[in-house]
Design a protein around this nucleic acid. Structure first.
Lengths: 214, 214
DNA sequence: TCATATGTGAAACTGAGTGTCACGGTAGCC
DNA sequence: GGCTACCGTGACACTCAGTTTCACATATGA
């Protein structure tokens, strides 16, 4: 067994434990509420020590939110994969498709997790903070697409607004209990801010009355 | 002395203590870093007990962020005060003027506080969470302006995007060390998403770009 | 003057998160 | 096969945030 395989064997074991810890944590949080469950409860329920639990997830919140780790990377990659002549806003919209795949694959679980995050102030705060840290990657990808070194203020705003569209769409999806189509909601959210000038290399297709701005 | 006056006398005393606690807290946080300062440090430096400090501010973060309490109310009121035929986006931009007044009145202090919040994950998270809770008030004000009961998804998105514009403008202002004009930055941020379809009762008027000012 | 309400301090308690150390198994090496 | 080094785990002690309770002091109102 070569080094890479040895390494990945351990990684697989770790990932399996991690997945199990996440599963147990979500189960308890959903049943008793995030604040009511202590780290000792989690550790006991998962059959590990409190130390081990905290080694896998640095914080209690992370047991829920670590699932979203790397989203910035995925979004940025998706952005770079879009056609170079596509405007920023469309590219951002399409990039988010890579994120909402999860929600379509496991609607029930996603719904429960999203609801848990929205209804728990501590989780909400950490989640917003986490999304905030995604912005630099998005801005950098937009800048790269435009052939620039530094992102413009306009690109920063678009990146932030795109994430808001996701959040607002998720909020409405949640309120509808998953009845409404998330893709449609996201389209609608993007349309509400659409027709801004392209930050990319070309103007958008047939948009009417493209704004002045920047 | 009537009841109201008696009540407000106490309120004034409380407000004075509160202001002093905030002052001391900001001083220590800026000097030593938020995480390095304990509640005991704060209480001792302010000459009160830890209990008292926590009575004024429920959390350590609140000693910094309580200054922004009621912003949702102020923003909503400002929105309602805008002309009924003004489009949402312009109304939101103008409403934010009521918030950035602080930054112009005390640029140095605002700069230091904003920097502290941005550079401290715990403060950043709480601040984002706080702003998140402002949205309902903004959405409701937008809905009211449109004569509707419930806000539309588009209105939710605009409210959220407007707050992002504020944050992005503040970020750039911070990077420039306060050199750039915050009003201009905010105008630029709004322009980046401008010309979206009007959610108000009328198409956007003839505002000509960076007209700054209020 | 007495009774009550209110702000404050002291202290005990819970729980999150950090750091340290010792144990035990596993992998690599001779 | 045995030896060694490493790595994941558990146990424990510690700090600190935040909650709760109680006691005291002051000021207000009757």
């Amino acid at each position: 067994m070569n080094e890479a395989a040895r390494g990945s064997t351990r990684d697989i074991a770790r990932a399996a434990v991690r997945a199990e810890l996440t599963r147990v944590a979500l189960e308890l949080f959903r049943r008793d509420g995030f604040a009511q469950v202590t780290l000792d409860d989690l550790a006991t329920a998962a059959g590990v020590s409190r130390s081990t639990f905290l080694r896998y997830f640095g914080t209690k919140e992370d047991a829920v939110l670590a699932a979203f780790d790397g989203s910035d990377r995925r979004l940025a990659d998706a952005l770079r994969a879009r056609p170079a002549d596509e405007d920023d806003w469309t590219a951002l919209r399409r990039a988010l498709d890579t994120l909402i795949v999860r929600y379509r694959q496991d609607p029930a679980g996603s719904l429960a997790t999203t609801r848990l995050v929205r209804e728990t102030p501590a989780l909400r705060a950490r989640n917003l903070e986490k999304q905030y840290t995604w912005r630099p990657a998005l801005e950098a990808a937009l800048a790269e697409r435009a052939g620039a070194e530094q992102p413009t203020l306009a690109q920063s705003v678009r990146a932030a607004a795109a994430l808001d569209c996701l959040n607002v769409a998720l909020d409405h999806w949640l309120v509808s209990d998953g009845e409404l189509d998330l893709v449609r909601l996201l389209d609608e959210a993007f349309a509400a801010l659409a027709a801004q000038r392209p930050g990319g290399t070309k103007r958008p297709g047939g948009t009417k009355r493209a704004g002045r701005g920047q």
